[in-house]
Amino acid sequence: MIYVKRLLCAVLVVFLAACDVPFTKEDPVVVSVGSSKLHLSEIQKQVPEWDSWDDQQRLKFLENWIEEETLYQEAVENGTDKDPVLVRQIEQTVRKIVVDHFLQSFADTMVVGDAEKIDFYHAHPELFLRGKTSISGALIFFRDWQSGDQYYRGHKNLKYDSLPGPHYLIKKIETFESVTETPDSCMITSFDSVEVGTLTKMKYCGGALKIAVVTSKLDSADVLPYEEVAEEVGTQAWLVHRAEVMDRLKKEWKMERPIFSKTDVFSEKEK
């Protein structure tokens, strides 16, 4: 291995030196193993960043190529490439790659319009559910019981669809938005018990006097607004569209070809 590295270093030095003068050939051989040659153009196809690599990176790449090529040649000399199982695996792999590439060429041209996306969104609301119930609102803190009681009596009949504003009786306000867990288990024990838009009664919890108000509640079964899921809708609609188009094309291609099968390959029971 040390010998190979030294040889490679020598080859690389010569190759790099040759880069400063016009090539005698447009596509020089950088390294070879037996009759197999690795041309500069092949390297640049495999490694587009080759020109920006330093000597150590280039040396490492060439070492790996030599090792892989040596092992491949050894395997071929031992007839491994003629093994029936391997030959069948290679054929099946090639078939799959060819088919996938062919189908991808059709998929790349498929486009789903905005109208189709919106139709898909309305046709499949179950795919875009919120998933978890969430609430928004505020916790209102008071300095003393008298301030809290006075505030509650003066505002308990109001309906809050937005956050409460500053008030001389209020010590501070802590807001919460679209939370999926209770922001205060003492004031809001569960989402099911929440009455939206109404002040709760004042409690002394966690060393403070406070009132809670929930200004909005979004149920887990609610469908998310289109604007929030537009990208996902587009992806889902495209996948369904692709499946439908591919299914239609496969049927058309089969109809264009004579297809026969022997019925006696099936058992009587399966018939």
Rank of each mutant, 00 (worst) to 15 (best):
T175M: 01
F176L: 07
F176H: 10
F176W: 08
E177I: 11
E177Q: 15
E177K: 14
S178T: 06
S178E: 12
S178C: 01
V179D: 09
V179R: 05
V179W: 05
V179L: 13
T180H: 11
T180Y: 05
T180L: 07
E181P: 01
E181L: 13
E181Q: 15
E181G: 06
E181K: 15
T182K: 01
T182R: 02
P183V: 07
P183S: 08
P183Y: 03
P183M: 08
P183Q: 09
P183F: 07
D184P: 06
D184Q: 07
S185W: 01
C186Y: 04
C186Q: 10
C186E: 13
C186I: 03
M187T: 00
M187N: 04
M187F: 00
M187E: 09
M187A: 14
M187P: 00
I188S: 01
I188F: 06
T189P: 00
S190Q: 07
S190K: 12
S190H: 10
S190N: 14
S190M: 11
S190R: 10
S190Y: 10
F191V: 03
F191M: 07
D192S: 13
D192G: 07
D192W: 02
S193P: 00
S193F: 03
S193V: 02
V194T: 06
V194F: 03
E195A: 13
V196F: 08
V196T: 13
V196C: 09
V196M: 06
G197D: 06
T198G: 01
T198P: 00
T198Q: 15
T198F: 04
L199W: 10
L199G: 09
L199K: 08
T200C: 04
K201G: 13
K201E: 14
K201M: 09
M202I: 13
K203G: 03
K203R: 15
K203M: 12
K203Y: 06
K203V: 13
K203S: 12
Y204L: 13
Y204D: 14
Y204T: 09
Y204E: 14
Y204I: 08
Y204R: 11
C205T: 10
C205Q: 05
C205S: 12
C205G: 02
C205M: 10
C205W: 05
G206R: 11
G206W: 04
G206C: 08
G206E: 14
G207H: 08
G207V: 09
G207K: 07
G207F: 05
G207Y: 05
A208E: 15
A208R: 14
A208D: 14
A208M: 08
A208W: 04
L209K: 10
L209S: 02
L209Y: 14
K210F: 00
K210R: 13
K210A: 13
K210V: 01
I211P: 00
I211T: 06
I211L: 12
I211H: 02
I211R: 00
A212H: 00
A212C: 09
A212V: 04
A212M: 05
A212L: 04
V213I: 06
V214F: 03
V214K: 00
V214D: 01
T215A: 11
S216M: 05
S216D: 11
K217E: 04
L218D: 05
L218R: 09
L218Q: 08
D219C: 03
D219P: 01
D219Q: 10
D219G: 00
S220T: 00
S220W: 02
S220K: 14
